[in-house]
Design a protein around this nucleic acid. Structure first.
Lengths: 133, 133
DNA sequence: CTGGATCCTACTCGATACTG
DNA sequence: CAGTATCGAGTAGGATCCAG
């Protein structure tokens, strides 16, 4: 992508950005099925593994683990193991992770505000395209 | 997802939202490889098909067409054909599409600001995990 | 409760060739 | 210039079983 037009004032396009588009990078990282959901859920504070699984509704243990590992790897989430029986593991956003919740929360709000509009548009489009056939 | 905690004040959780999580819905829609890129690129005004293809860097005609069709279907983009030779087709964001650029632009800015941090965290994580083997 | 290993399916996406 | 049709590879992610 051509970044120069889109960046906020004061931000310069570095060589690294040209080589490796930051947005493309971020999308590759958060563009899977569960990452955004998990980050948004962690927005209000630390959560345990099982609590996340319940809240995310539909995620398998495998994918939740996978998602959390990637977030941890990228420094967006910390993992804290409490030595107890049964085990208790808490996940919490780092500052970078919290910063990410801002646009993602914006996305959530957009989703809520435009759900009906989008659904209606889709219905109209599908109806219109199919007509006459 | 449990939406009640996360919604802005004044927004009520409707039955539709419980049935069909709006965020999940949005992510299914924009979570593919090119949608976010295209929407961000259209942020400054209408663009032609080929201009988009050049700017997106790497998208195939097939995928660009597919992406634009979906955006059109959801009412986020309009498609205008100018009857000329050669053909000229312009794509432009609708108001809903423009509203979407706000969080997406936020995401872009986050990407730029945190690229180095994330890359460093990843490197550290990978190095740390691999050590001793 | 947390999470690793394996297997398997479905779907996404890109390459290529063709059209108006 | 702006698409469409077809095909094949790669991979995301779910099901299941095992373990500390």
């Amino acid at each position: 992508m051509d970044l120069a037009l889109l960046l906020p004032p004061g931000v310069t396009v570095t060589a690294a950005m040209k080589e490796r588009c930051p947005l493309r990078d971020t999308l590759d990282r958060i563009g899977d099925r569960w990452t955004v959901i998990v980050v948004v859920l962690l927005r209000n504070g630390p959560m345990r593994f099982t609590a996340l699984q319940r809240a995310a509704e539909g995620v398998s243990r495998r994918m939740l683990t996978h998602t959390l590992r990637n977030l941890e790897r990228d420094g967006l989430v910390t993992r804290t193991v409490h030595a107890s029986v049964p085990p208790k593991v808490e996940y919490e956003l780092t500052p970078a992770g919290h910063a990410l919740t801002e646009p993602l929360t914006g996305l959530l709000h957009w989703s809520v505000r435009h759900q009906e509009t989008v659904l209606a548009a889709r219905k109209a489009y599908d109806g219109g395209s199919a007509e006459g056939g």
